[in-house]
Design a protein around this nucleic acid. Structure first.
Lengths: 198, 198
DNA sequence: CCCGCGCTATGACAGCGGTCATAGTAGCTC
DNA sequence: GAGCTACTATGACCGCTGTCATAGCGCGGG
C-alpha cells in the first residue's frame, strides 16, 4: 500500500512483485510493470540492464525482505509471544487480504520458483535466499520464545511450507478453508515446542 | 514412467503434465508437448479443439487422478497403516525423485494454480478439483485408520499443504531439507489424531 | 471403385514480448 | 553557455507461440 512516493526504480520492483503475485512471472510483461508503476518505459533499460531476469530477481529479493519485516512486526505486536500466535498472525495476513480483495494474488516467491527454478539459476537462487530470509526471521522469533535453536529452524520451515501450500489450495478453491486448517492444526504443535525456562 | 504404449491423445496429456511440472504452464509450448509425446502436431487441434486451455485442464485433472491413485497404492502397501506412515510415503515419493533425477519438477497442479488461477477460471476449477480429488483420497485413508471423519478432512488438507509448500522450498534450495522437516514434525501430530477403537 | 471419416501434415498469420538503437530532455558543473 | 551525466522517449526488430486453413493420407464400408 505505500506505493507512491519512492523512486521510480523502487516502484518498478514493487510493481513487478505485485504483478508476479497475480499473473506469474511469464504472465507479467515489462511494459506492464512500467505502466503499473507509472514509470517511463525507457527507465527499464536504464535501471535494469540485466533485463527481465534482473527485475524479477530484485522483486523476489524484495519479497523476502518484506516477509522478514512482517515477521518482526508481528512479533512486536503480539500481546504475549507464542509460536501459535505468530503463525496465526502470519496466516491472518492472507485471510484478511483474500477477504478484502479476493483471491487474486499469491506469494511472488512461489511464483518465481514455479516459473523459473528450472530455466534461470539466478532466479532460483534469489528465491532460495528469500525463503532463507523469511525462515531465518521466523526461526529467530521462535528461539526468542523458548524453542530450542535447531528445532526452531525446522519448525519455521514447517510453518512456511504449510502456509505456502495452503495459499495454493486457497487460491485454487477460492476459499480460506485450507488456511484455517493449518492454523488450527499447527498451533498446538508449535506451542508444545516451547521449553520451560528457569 | 508408463509413458509409451497408449494412444497419442493420452500421451499428449501425460506429456503436458510432465512439461508443466518443469517449466510452468506459460513456459510450455504446444509444439513442445507434441514433440515430447512423439505425437504429430496436427493431432493437437484434432484432440483438443479447445486449445491450450483444454490440454492444460486435462493435464491437471490427470494429475489429480494420479495423486489419488498413488495414495491408494501407498495405503495398500503400508505394513501397518498409520497416518504418519502414509505421509512419509507421500513425501518419500518426492525425495526419491529429487535424489534420482534432480530438482527439475514440481507439482503440475501447483504450477497451474500459480500461472492460471487469475487468468483462466476453467483451469482454476480444474486445479481445485484436482486438490479435492487428492484431499479426498487422503481423508478417506485417514478415516480408515481411525481418524474421526471431520478431522480427517482437515488433516488431509494440512498434509497436502505442507507437502506442496515443502516442494516449493525444496526446489528453490535444491535440497530436500524442507521435505524432511515436514515429515518429521507432522508425523506425531498425525498419529495422535487416531482414536482408539473398541 | 469411391465415398466418408478419422487422423495427419504444413504453411501462414497475427499478436505479443523482450530487447536494442537512437535520439531527446533536464539539470548540474565548470 | 558548453558539456557531461542521468534519465526518458519511441520505434523497430526478431523470435516465439497459439491458432487457423488447407490439403493429404489410410482405410473400412457401400
Amino acid at each position: 500500500m505505500p506505493a507512491s512516493e519512492r523512486g521510480p526504480r523502487e516502484r518498478m520492483v514493487f510493481s513487478a512483485a505485485q504483478l508476479i503475485r497475480r499473473e506469474g512471472v511469464a504472465g507479467t510483461g515489462m511494459r506492464e510493470v512500467a505502466a503499473h508503476a507509472a514509470a517511463p518505459r525507457g527507465s527499464l533499460q536504464h535501471y535494469f540492464p540485466g533485463g527481465k531476469e534482473q527485475l524479477v530477481n530484485e522483486a523476489v529479493a524484495w519479497a523476502g525482505r518484506y516477509a522478514r519485516g512482517r515477521v518482526a512486526r508481528f512479533v512486536a505486536a503480539l500481546p504475549e509471544p507464542t509460536p501459535s500466535g505468530l503463525f496465526a498472525r502470519m496466516v491472518a495476513q492472507w485471510t484478511d487480504e483474500y477477504a478484502a480483495e479476493g483471491f487474486a494474488g499469491g506469494c511472488p516467491v512461489a511464483a518465481a520458483t514455479v516459473d523459473c527454478s528450472q530455466s534461470s539459476a539466478a532466479t532460483r537462487e534469489a528465491a532460495s535466499a528469500a525463503f532463507a530470509d523469511w525462515t531465518g526471521a521466523v526461526a529467530e522469533a521462535l528461539a526468542e520464545m523458548g524453542v530450542p535453536a535447531e528445532r526452531a529452524r525446522t519448525l519455521a520451515t514447517v510453518m512456511i511450507s504449510a502456509l505456502e501450500g495452503a495459499l495454493l489450495i486457497a487460491r485454487a478453491e477460492r476459499d480460506v478453508r485450507a488456511l484455517e486448517a493449518v492454523t488450527q492444526e499447527l498451533g498446538p504443535l508449535l506451542d508444545a515446542a516451547v521449553v520451560e525456562r528457569a
